[in-house]
Each structure stands twice: as C-alpha cells, then as structure tokens.
C-alpha cells in the first residue's frame, strides 16, 4: 500500500508538468495498444489481400492497407508489441549487465577496472549503425540480433556511469562503516552502493527507450531487423517509402507511432529527471 501511494505521488508530480502529462499519456497509449493488440486489431497482421492493396483509410481499414493488402492498423499495433518488447527487453538486459559490470569495475581491483574500461571504450568507439549492420550481417536478421545490437551498444554507457558513482561511493562514510563492521563486498555492493546509484540510471534508461525503438525501426527499414512478415514499424516505413508517391498513408502509419513513442518516452524521461535531479534541468 505504501509503495502504491508512493507511485501515485510520483504520477501526480509528473502530470502536474504539461510535458510530463503528455509523455505519460503517450507512453500509456503505446503500451496499452501493444498489450491489447489482439483485441484491438481487426485483422491478422500478416493476412494478405492483394485485391485490397493501397486502400486509403476507411472504417474497414482505419489506417488503410499496404501494397499487398495488409491492414496497417493491425500491423501498427503488433509492430508496437515488437518495438516495445525489444526496447524493454534489450534495455532491461543492458541495464542488468551494465550495472553488474559498472559495480565490478568501480569496486574491483584496479587492473580489472582498466580491462573493463578498455572493453567499454572499444565498444563505444564503433559508430552505432556500422556496429549494428556488422553484427546483423554476421548473425543474420532476427529479433535476437536486434536485441544483441542494442545490448552491445548500451552496456558501456550504463556501466561507465555506475562505475563512476561506485568509485565515489566506495570511500563514502556509510560504506566505510559497513566495511569496518565486517560486511562483505557482495553486501556492500548490493545493500549500500546499488540503491544509491540505481535511480539516475533508471531515468537514463527510460530516455534511451526511444533510441532503441529507432534502432529497431532503422534496422527493419534496411531489411536487417525482424524478418518478414513480422510487422515492425521500420518495415512498414520501408513498404511505404517505396510507394510514397501513390500511397502516403503507409509512411504515415509507420512513422507516426515511432514519433509518438519517441516523444512520449523522451518527455516522460525528461520530466522524471527534472523531478529527481533538478540540477540537470534544461541542461540536456
């Protein structure tokens, strides 16, 4: 009950900010539409109907149809499921790995810190798109490949931030006190350091979600993401780009959810950051 009350207080603080309210509304809309895609979609997302190709928006097809007659509204809903599952799954995995490696680098011996820093810097030195295309070329286009790309791209950033904060907290009084009372490294890391570093990183992760959505859409647009006929906002964009002169609504159907999701998570993340760390307000 206490936790629910705390969440409710945070929500109320978010909605007091106009951009926060908009962001939260968009995120809730995107999440709910993805969760209830089965119920909301009028057609299976992969059902072909060449006779109905390039139909503009109507009551039968709320966002129109694509070049092989698939219902775009259904594809957008199911595409949201793919985008969010990759965004949440990959960001979650990146967070877990990044936090673990950051804690180890910050709290462990100097030589291990140096090795890990070298690995982080090596990964960060690759341009994201080139790294993504290289990995997908090696592993082949699939959902897992996209997740792998996101994890490899994101982990160094999270790990570096956690490492820096761990280095600071390592010599903090409460940590030294715990150590003098005989607490082991594992307890110090999980009980005394982690709770103090996880807040900012969670906010940062929420702001990374639109980046991950864009990476997935970008790879799918290039034919290197999820495999057809699995709906993806990027592949819808690709279908639409090829026919943009005649049927602009396909690009709109693919592009709009990417824009709304990006705006939603960005506004929400920025509002959360401003609430929890007012010193950063307006600096990014």
């Amino acid at each position: 009950m206490l936790r629910l009350a705390k969440i409710w207080r945070i929500v109320r603080r978010i909605v007091r900010e106009p951009l926060g309210a908009l962001g939260l509304g968009l995120v809730v809309l995107v999440v709910l539409s993805a969760l209830f895609a089965d119920v909301l979609a009028s057609y299976p997302p992969t059902k072909l109907s060449p006779a109905d190709r390039f139909a503009p928006a109507s009551f039968q097809h709320l966002l129109g149809t694509d070049h092989i007659g698939r219902d775009l509204f259904s594809r957008v809903l199911y595409g949201g499921r793919i985008a969010l599952s990759i965004a949440l799954g990959a960001t979650g995995a990146s967070l877990v790995i990044g936090i673990m490696l950051g804690l180890i680098a910050g709290y462990g011996p100097r030589w291990l810190d140096n090795i890990l820093l070298l690995v982080f810097d090596a990964l960060k030195s690759f341009p994201t798109v080139i790294l993504a295309l290289t990995l997908v070329t090696i592993t082949g286009p699939s959902l897992m490949s996209v997740v792998l790309v996101v994890v490899l791209v994101s982990v160094p950033g999270y790990a570096r931030i956690i490492r820096t904060q761990t280095l600071v907290l390592k010599s903090a009084e409460h940590v030294m006190a715990a150590r003098s009372m005989g607490a082991g490294s594992a307890r110090i890391l999980t009980v005394h350091i982690l709770p103090n570093v996880i807040g900012p990183i969670l906010i940062l992760a929420s702001m990374d979600i639109p980046v991950v959505v864009a990476i997935e859409a970008g790879l799918s647009f290039l034919g290197m993401g999820v495999r057809p006929p699995t709906p993806s906002w990027g592949s819808i964009l690709n279908d639409g780009f090829a026919n943009i002169r005649d049927s602009y609504w396909i690009v709109v159907a693919g592009g709009l959810p990417i824009i709304l999701t990006t705006l939603g998570f960005t506004f929400l993340g920025e509002t959360l950051r401003d609430l929890f760390d007012p010193r950063l307000k307006g600096r990014v």
């Binding site: 960060k124 950033g157 702001m207 990374d208 950063l280």
Partner: peptide
C-alpha cells in the same frame, strides 16, 4: 547513447 547526458552537446 546514454553518455549524451555527460557531454556538453545541447539539443540546440
């Protein structure tokens, strides 16, 4: 990605 926050690059 996440290190954007640590740079001086503003959105403007």
């Amino acid at each position: 990605m996440s290190n954007i926050a640590s740079t001086n690059l503003s959105r403007r």
